[in-house]
Protein backbone atom coordinates (compact mmCIF):
# COMPACT_ATOMS: atom_id res chain seq x y z
CA UNK A 1 0.00 0.00 0.00
CA UNK A 2 1.55 3.25 -1.10
CA UNK A 3 -0.63 5.94 0.39
CA UNK A 4 -2.17 6.44 3.80
CA UNK A 5 -5.86 7.31 3.96
CA UNK A 6 -4.96 10.97 4.49
CA UNK A 7 -2.66 10.74 1.51
CA UNK A 8 -5.49 9.43 -0.64
CA UNK A 9 -7.78 12.21 0.53
CA UNK A 10 -5.11 14.76 -0.36
CA UNK A 11 -4.70 13.30 -3.83
CA UNK A 12 -8.45 13.31 -4.47
CA UNK A 13 -8.65 16.96 -3.48
CA UNK A 14 -5.76 17.84 -5.76
CA UNK A 15 -7.68 16.29 -8.67
CA UNK A 16 -10.27 19.07 -8.37
CA UNK A 17 -7.81 21.86 -7.61
CA UNK A 18 -6.61 22.53 -11.15
CA UNK A 19 -8.29 22.97 -14.51
CA UNK A 20 -6.99 19.57 -15.66
CA UNK A 21 -6.97 16.41 -13.53
CA UNK A 22 -3.56 15.57 -14.95
CA UNK A 23 -2.08 18.55 -13.07
CA UNK A 24 -2.63 16.59 -9.85
CA UNK A 25 0.02 14.03 -10.86
CA UNK A 26 3.05 16.00 -9.63
CA UNK A 27 1.43 16.82 -6.26
CA UNK A 28 0.32 13.18 -5.92
CA UNK A 29 3.83 11.89 -6.58
CA UNK A 30 5.20 14.34 -4.03
CA UNK A 31 2.72 12.95 -1.51
CA UNK A 32 3.82 9.36 -2.13
CA UNK A 33 7.45 10.41 -1.76
CA UNK A 34 6.71 12.33 1.43
CA UNK A 35 5.04 9.27 2.94
CA UNK A 36 7.45 6.54 1.88
CA UNK A 37 10.58 8.22 0.58
CA UNK A 38 10.48 6.97 -2.97
CA UNK A 39 8.16 5.95 -5.77
CA UNK A 40 7.88 2.32 -6.83
CA UNK A 41 6.04 0.81 -9.77
CA UNK A 42 3.27 -0.40 -7.43
CA UNK A 43 2.81 3.16 -6.16
CA UNK A 44 2.20 4.35 -9.68
CA UNK A 45 -0.32 1.58 -10.22
CA UNK A 46 -2.08 2.48 -7.01
CA UNK A 47 -2.12 6.18 -7.90
CA UNK A 48 -3.57 5.22 -11.26
CA UNK A 49 -6.49 3.53 -9.46
CA UNK A 50 -6.97 6.30 -6.89
CA UNK A 51 -6.76 9.06 -9.50
CA UNK A 52 -8.54 7.17 -12.27
CA UNK A 53 -5.76 8.14 -14.67
CA UNK A 54 -3.68 5.87 -16.92
CA UNK A 55 -0.57 4.53 -15.18
CA UNK A 56 1.43 5.54 -18.24
CA UNK A 57 0.53 9.21 -17.70
CA UNK A 58 1.80 9.00 -14.13
CA UNK A 59 4.86 6.97 -15.06
CA UNK A 60 6.00 9.48 -17.69
CA UNK A 61 5.81 12.32 -15.19
CA UNK A 62 7.54 10.33 -12.45
CA UNK A 63 10.45 9.49 -14.74
CA UNK A 64 10.80 12.94 -16.34
CA UNK A 65 11.42 14.91 -13.16
CA UNK A 66 14.63 14.36 -11.22
CA UNK A 67 13.23 15.17 -7.79
CA UNK A 68 11.17 11.99 -7.78
CA UNK A 69 13.20 9.13 -6.35
CA UNK A 70 12.64 6.07 -8.48
CA UNK A 71 14.52 3.81 -6.10
CA UNK A 72 14.80 3.51 -2.34
CA UNK A 73 16.39 6.58 -0.82
CA UNK A 74 17.83 7.18 2.63
CA UNK A 75 15.93 9.12 5.25
CA UNK A 76 18.26 12.03 4.51
CA UNK A 77 18.77 12.64 0.82
CA UNK A 78 21.97 14.67 0.57
CA UNK A 79 21.95 16.52 -2.73
CA UNK A 80 25.18 18.32 -3.48
CA UNK A 81 25.27 20.97 -6.17
CA UNK A 82 28.07 20.41 -8.69
CA UNK A 83 27.07 23.09 -11.18
CA UNK A 84 29.36 25.95 -12.29
CA UNK A 85 29.77 28.14 -9.21
CA UNK A 86 29.64 25.23 -6.78
CA UNK A 87 32.18 23.39 -8.94
CA UNK A 88 34.46 26.45 -8.72
CA UNK A 89 33.99 26.40 -4.94
CA UNK A 90 34.89 22.71 -4.63
CA UNK A 91 31.41 21.20 -4.54
CA UNK A 92 32.66 18.17 -6.46
CA UNK A 93 35.50 17.54 -4.03
CA UNK A 94 32.98 17.89 -1.21
CA UNK A 95 30.73 15.28 -2.81
CA UNK A 96 33.66 12.88 -3.04
CA UNK A 97 34.46 13.62 0.60
CA UNK A 98 30.91 12.86 1.76
CA UNK A 99 30.74 9.66 -0.27
CA UNK A 100 34.05 8.49 1.11
CA UNK A 101 33.11 9.40 4.65
CA UNK A 102 29.82 7.52 4.41
CA UNK A 103 31.49 4.75 2.40
CA UNK A 104 28.78 5.03 -0.25
CA UNK A 105 28.43 5.14 -4.00
CA UNK A 106 26.27 7.90 -5.43
CA UNK A 107 22.57 6.91 -5.27
CA UNK A 108 23.04 4.06 -2.77
CA UNK A 109 21.33 3.89 0.61
CA UNK A 110 23.61 3.58 3.63
CA UNK A 111 23.26 0.38 5.69
CA UNK A 112 21.55 2.22 8.52
CA UNK A 113 18.99 3.56 6.03
CA UNK A 114 19.88 7.15 6.89
CA UNK A 115 21.71 8.49 3.87
CA UNK A 116 21.67 8.72 0.11
CA UNK A 117 24.03 11.10 -1.67
CA UNK A 118 23.36 12.57 -5.11
CA UNK A 119 25.10 15.12 -7.29
CA UNK A 120 22.53 17.67 -8.42
CA UNK A 121 22.39 20.70 -10.67
CA UNK A 122 22.13 24.37 -9.67
CA UNK A 123 20.10 24.84 -6.48
CA UNK A 124 19.81 28.63 -6.87
CA UNK A 125 22.08 29.49 -3.99
CA UNK A 126 25.33 30.30 -5.80
CA UNK A 127 26.33 33.19 -3.53
CA UNK A 128 26.71 30.68 -0.72
CA UNK A 129 28.53 27.99 -2.71
CA UNK A 130 29.22 25.20 -2.16
CA UNK A 131 25.69 24.23 -1.28
CA UNK A 132 23.73 21.09 -0.57
CA UNK A 133 20.19 20.20 0.34
CA UNK A 134 19.22 17.58 2.87
CA UNK A 135 15.76 16.74 1.60
CA UNK A 136 14.38 20.30 1.24
CA UNK A 137 16.73 22.08 3.67
CA UNK A 138 19.57 24.23 2.42
CA UNK A 139 23.08 24.03 3.91
CA UNK A 140 25.36 26.74 2.61
CA UNK A 141 28.97 27.97 2.52
CA UNK A 142 30.15 24.46 3.22
CA UNK A 143 33.52 22.92 3.88
CA UNK A 144 34.60 19.53 5.21
CA UNK A 145 34.29 20.63 8.83
CA UNK A 146 30.75 21.87 8.41
CA UNK A 147 29.83 18.69 6.59
CA UNK A 148 31.23 16.59 9.47
CA UNK A 149 29.10 18.56 11.89
CA UNK A 150 26.02 18.24 9.70
CA UNK A 151 26.38 14.46 9.38
CA UNK A 152 26.82 14.14 13.14
CA UNK A 153 23.68 16.14 13.74
CA UNK A 154 21.70 14.06 11.29
CA UNK A 155 22.82 10.84 12.95
CA UNK A 156 21.47 11.96 16.31
Amino acid sequence: MALTEQGKEYVKKELDRYESRLSAIIPALYKVQEEKGWIAKEDIEELSRVMDLPASAIQEVATFYTMFNKKPTGKYHIQVCCNVTCAMKKGRELTDYILKKLDLEEGEVSNDGLFTVSRVECLGSCDTAPVLQVNFDYHENLDEKKVDLLLDQLRK
Partner: peptide
Amino acid sequence: YRGAGAYICGEETGMISSLEG
Protein backbone atom coordinates in the same frame (compact mmCIF):
# COMPACT_ATOMS: atom_id res chain seq x y z
CA TYR B 1 2.38 25.05 -8.43
CA ARG B 2 5.59 23.21 -7.66
CA GLY B 3 7.87 21.85 -10.33
CA ALA B 4 9.89 18.75 -9.59
CA GLY B 5 13.40 19.24 -10.87
CA ALA B 6 13.62 20.02 -14.57
CA TYR B 7 15.53 22.98 -15.99
CA ILE B 8 13.48 22.84 -19.16
CA CYS B 9 10.36 23.90 -17.26
CA GLY B 10 11.82 27.40 -17.10
CA GLU B 11 11.17 27.61 -20.84
CA GLU B 12 7.67 29.04 -21.09
CA THR B 13 6.08 26.31 -23.19
CA GLY B 14 7.88 23.63 -21.16
CA MET B 15 6.40 25.23 -18.07
CA ILE B 16 2.94 25.14 -19.62
CA SER B 17 3.33 21.42 -20.42
CA SER B 18 4.43 20.80 -16.87
CA LEU B 19 1.51 22.70 -15.37
CA GLU B 20 -0.79 20.68 -17.59
CA GLY B 21 0.45 17.57 -15.83
